[in-house]
Design a protein around this nucleic acid. Structure first.
Lengths: 229, 229
DNA sequence: CCAAAAGTGTTCTCCATACACCCATGC
DNA sequence: GCATGGGTGTATGGAGAACACTTTTGG
């Protein structure tokens, strides 16, 4: 059955917010637009949903096409439908977001994107469309999510120190956290496996490396455990 | 500028989940479909987003058209885009939900809806499309929301007793709550105004009536107060 | 030996929980 | 006077918050 346009339809797009964390800084993945509107501006990777394509599939496809990033776990954020958000006309966009380790991917722009690049989250250039608003919404969501879900483990390398984990939380929540209390809390959940290995090369006492223990976390979650910081 | 159909577009709809609370029971507002597909089945009020119409506007319009319910505060829930959710073809739906007092509205079906009716939430008939899934998602959201936002005040009459408030929480969370602890907690937030008036007509000691003090709540919220049960 | 970050315990306060009886009213 | 729901206080345990010094390494 061919598409029938019984009613005029808004266009439907998806946009991806990818947060990364690297050396103490939160980062955001942006692409430089290669075509109008907003040619030359930076924007969130995204584009039109194709016929018989799932929203999540569309988001993954656009992300891969425009940045080379693949196989990430995308979570739906919010749907934006302001009438003036796209100069081409009524366009509704479903936003997705994900948390990744930037060094796990090689960026590769193509199709509509002239370039793809990580920016410091607190130092992003002016964005196309209403993407500033979308990013703000995503940051709020991230701040909320961090409190009851162990996001740290998606943003850090597989092996990490407790100080790195703490710094991440401080960066996301924009607060300071007491070292002893933080360690006590995190370790008491016993979802971290101490590796007995130690960080090397620093001009100070080397820190023990830990690993996220997903098995224990999943088991604990099922039996009513609630991660909370 | 006329609509240009450069790409085939999925259709875009909105659906509304209205939760009500009445005499100890959570209710859900449904409409009986007056046309195909699913003619005669019960479904969430909703329909196509029109040209140059905001998502929220579309939801309010469909709600008013199909049920007569107007002027409610709708909150976006989630966007559903499974390929097989509508037999007419690829249709994406943005779901909104709201909390209301059923007795505040007179139901009035029209346009696509043959009837509009409140159902017990735990006893809903088979639903059209993927509306069962949508309702389940909304219930989860409601359970989460109730813990950190004073939803009670939207679902109860303006003047209510503490027992009514407690029953509401028990109904939503599907648990039992200790009476004394509940009262202590709620009253300690001082967002309830005791009215010095009393319930009448019961075969027992009359309960004091309270009112939600929005001014105090808004003020407290701004200065970092967090409602939590 | 100095700089730099790792690592470690205790005290106090507050909040959540558990729990049982008297009170006011209508019939 | 009895049935029904309204209303109240206290004791205990556990978790969060505050807080300072020693340890290990590289240079």
């Amino acid at each position: 059955m061919p598409y029938t346009y019984a009613y005029p339809r808004p266009a439907l797009t998806v946009d991806c917010i990818l947060f990364g964390y690297d050396e103490g800084d939160l980062k955001l993945l942006l692409v430089e637009r290669g075509s109008e509107p907003f040619k030359g501006r930076w924007a969130l990777p995204g584009g039109f949903v194709q016929r018989n394509e799932t929203l999540g599939d569309a988001a993954l496809r656009e992300l891969a096409e425009e940045t080379g990033v693949g196989k990430v776990y995308l979570e739906q954020l919010y749907t934006f439908g302001d009438l003036d958000r796209d100069p081409r006309g009524h366009t509704v966009s479903v936003a997705y977001f994900a948390l990744v380790r930037p060094d796990g991917f090689t960026l590769q722009a193509s199709t509509d994107a002239a370039a793809a690049k990580w920016f410091l989250l607190r130092k992003t250039p002016p964005l196309a469309f209403d993407h500033k608003k979308i990013v703000e919404t995503a940051v709020e969501r991230l701040k909320g999510k961090v409190r009851y879900q162990p996001i740290g483990f998606e943003l850090l390398p597989k092996k990490f120190t407790l100080s790195q984990l703490q710094q991440l939380y401080e960066a996301v929540l924009e607060t300071e956290i007491d070292k002893r209390n933080f360690r006590k809390k995190i370790l008491s959940m016993s979802i971290l496996k101490p590796l007995g290995e130690y960080e090397a090369g620093a001009a100070n006492r080397p820190a023990q490396l830990y690993q996220f223990d997903r098995k224990k976390y999943d088991a604990a979650t099922k039996s009513g455990f609630l991660f909370e910081l």
